[in-house]
Amino acid sequence: MGAKSAQLKRPKVIRVVGLQVIVAIVVSVLCWGFLDSVAAYSALLGGLVCAMPNLYFAWKAFSYQGAQAAREIVRSFYKAEAVKFGLTAVLFALVFALVRPLNPISFFLTYAVVQAMHWLAPMVLKR
């Protein structure tokens, strides 16, 4: 076995984040069509508050690879998750402090739908 065949492929987690952004945009457009512009930008903000920290996590957590970097991999996962949690809290606080008017129902429902993409992504991205 050559060195090339022994290396693992990096996970394509960026696809999950891309799917989350697409879902946030689709839900926002649906809110705009069926409700109003406040619901639309509230939905978009809810989706982005979910997707942006996940993008950071995907970028940082998978920066190391290989058995020799096992400690760095574990450390990067813990650090990326901690920063992701903090970033999520900051984004929530910024939205609720700065955005007026805000439709909280659209915001939270879109956040939940975009978060659910983690569970549905393997089925959607299987192709």
Rank of each mutant, 00 (worst) to 15 (best):
A70S: 12
W32C: 09
I25E: 02
L45F: 10
F34T: 09
M1Q: 14
G2Q: 04
S37A: 13
V16N: 12
Y64G: 02
E72Y: 06
F77D: 11
S106T: 07
Q20R: 03
L102N: 06
V95C: 09
F57H: 13
V90G: 01
G18L: 06
L44R: 12
G46W: 01
L98F: 14
N54R: 12
N103S: 12
L19P: 00
A6Y: 05
M117T: 12
T110A: 08
L94F: 12
P53E: 06
A121C: 07
G33Y: 15
V38A: 04
F108H: 01
L48G: 07
V124A: 07
M52F: 13
I25C: 04
V74S: 08
S5R: 10
V124N: 03
T110D: 12
D36Q: 02
P53T: 10
V83L: 14
V90C: 09
M52E: 11
K126P: 00
V114E: 05
T110N: 09
G18T: 04
F62V: 05
A121H: 08
A89I: 15
V27H: 02
W32L: 15
A3M: 10
K79Q: 15
F107H: 05
M1H: 14
I22G: 00
F107R: 09
I22L: 10
A97C: 14
L44C: 05
E72H: 12
K60F: 00
S76M: 03
K60I: 03
I25W: 01
I105D: 09
A24V: 12
A24R: 00
F108W: 07
V17S: 01
H118C: 10
V21I: 13
K79T: 14
A82K: 10
I73T: 08
